[in-house]
Every structure is written in structure tokens, then in C-alpha cells.
Amino acid sequence: MTEQSPRKPELVCPAGSLRALKLAVDAGADTVYMGMKDATNARNFAGLNFDAAQAREGVEYAHRRGAKVLMALNTYGEARDPSPWYRAVDAAAAFGADALILADPAVMAYARDHHPELRLHLSVQASATNYEAIEFYRERYGIQRAVLPRVLTISQVAHLIKNSGVEIEVFGFGSLCVMVEGRCALSSYATGRSPNNAGVCSPAASVRWVEKGDVVEARLNEVLIDCFGANEARGYPTLCKGRFEVDGVTDYALEEPTSLNTLSMLPELINIGVAAIKIEGRQRSPAYVEQVTKVWRAAIDACALDPGRFFVQPTWTTALGRVAEGQQHTLGAYNRPWR
């Protein structure tokens, strides 16, 4: 790898709707990522994502303002009929997407063969946690960037970047998957639908809230994921973030309902050569996307200007705290307090 000073990482922001896309671009996103209104992407939620006309308008809006658009086609083509995934590749090429975010080798092969000019990114859903895995996709499909699962430590990320021939994108902010993305079928075990087979996790259609006296139960296809007292904040019953009983102890057995915030690690992320920092949250409101984008824009700019004096400004923390629904923030796997 080259020895020149690390470059400023690209800020990649979520666009779950045309409104969110515009606000993200206006707030300083270098790049936005979006998906179509179907199972071809991993945020296949009701009321979210783009139809063809919106996608075209979104790409145009971003391009006019110098921002790039990535199209997430990051689920796995269905056995019965994988053709919607290929049509989505064609559509993305026609809209003028700057790159595709892919997980399925069959979709990668289609893009490589039919749209050789299209840039391909390896989705986090492809579960590439080491450079040999990334190399597999680079050699065969020519991927130019890989998004890393949120399970590696910062030193593992650094080692991977040193040994990898592609750009590396990491998650910087947002919800946290404790499981390796693309390697988790907990949701389909409970509901039949998962990120890999349907682009959803703990789908809303399977959630039932039941009031019982003073408590409210959150059930996922009837499995009791959590129950909340009158004064407790009620979290969405994502099943790995529920409270369960293990050996007579009831607690968050897999993951506390915290979210990821790596602002304080920004100098290190830049120093190890991270090419892009991704903000999670296509399912979040446009206002959320705008606020988070603004803070991260300011932080990346400040850090690039003078990494030695970089510190997390209290106004940033306040602004992020306001939109993060009072959730605790953690550095996730990057510093592995539990290691």
C-alpha cells in the first residue's frame, strides 16, 4: 500500500426515501445508498425505499450536487426466481447508479457480465471478515470495495486494510448487529423471514404488542421477546436484543439494545486507511438522516484538517443523542470491551 497521508474517508449515508436522500445530500453526504421497494435489498420494510421514478429523480438530484448514489441489491436471489435481482441490476445501471452493493455471487456475475462498466461493492451481507474472503470476490467479480461486518476490532480492520486490494468501508454509526451479517438466521427461525431470504429482520408483520395489566409484552410470532413495565422505554423486539432466561437469570442474554457510535475513533479510522464510513439507518426518518449526516460531515472535515487536535464536540454528542432515542452508544466490536 502507498505511504502517502491517509485520505479523507467518504461519508456514506442512508436514503430510505427520496426525502431522506435529498436531506442527506444537502447535509453533506459524499454518497448515499438506497434500495428498491422489494426483497432485493436488506431493508425491505413497508413504506420504505424507491420505485423507479423516485430512484431516477434521486440519482439526478445527487449527481447534480456532486454526490454519488449506491444501489443496495444485497439479499440473495431466490431459488424459485432470481430474475428480479438481475432486473434490479439492469434498472440500477439505467438510473445511473455509481455502484451496486451486492452479496450474492450470482448477482455479481450478472453485473460483471452485463454491465462491465458498473462498479461493484461487496455488501456487509456477504460476511467477508478477512482479506482472503474479500480477495475471492475481487478476483472473480472485480469488486472494488468491501463493507466489513460489525464484528472486527480496529486492529483487525487495520490488518485487513493492509492486506487487501480493495477499498474498505466500515460502519460508523447506527444500529448494531451483534451477529455477523449474512450469517444470522435467527429471524427466520422465529418468523420464516430473515435478512438473507427476505431482506428483513424481526419483521414488523410478526410483531404483536400485548398489554397485560401494568406490563406490555413484545411478541415476535408469539415468542415473548421482552416485556416492559409502565415506566420502561419500549424497544422494538429485534430478537437478539430481547430479555431471556439463561440458567435462572433473566437479562439481555445476547445483546444490550445499544447502538454504534465511532465518532471518538475517527482519527484512528482515518489513519488506518478506511476509505468510507457508513451510517446505518435506511429505516430511520429523514430528520434523523439529516441530523446524523450534518454531525458526521462536520466531524470528518474537522478530523481531516487537524487529526491531532480532533475531539468529539459536545454539540455533536447532544445532536446525536437527540435523534438516537436515548439509546446508549458503544464502540461495538472495534474496541471489544468484552474481549
Binding site: 436471489g77 431459488a79 450470482a106 460476511s127 449474512g182 438466521a185
Partner: peptide
């Protein structure tokens, strides 16, 4: 993660004797 015939075809080129289907 092999969820379609096209995906298995991608891996078939590499010489596997057998595949074990994903659990779901």
C-alpha cells in the same frame, strides 16, 4: 450462502463434490 441455482453454478466452476444447503 447459496440460495439459487445460479449461485451454485458460480461455485460449481471451482470443483466442489458436494454442497450442504443453507439451513433456512
Amino acid at each position: 450462502n447459496i440460495y439459487s441455482r445460479d449461485a451454485l453454478r458460480e461455485y460449481a466452476q471451482l470443483g466442489p463434490s458436494r454442497w450442504v444447503a443453507p439451513l433456512e
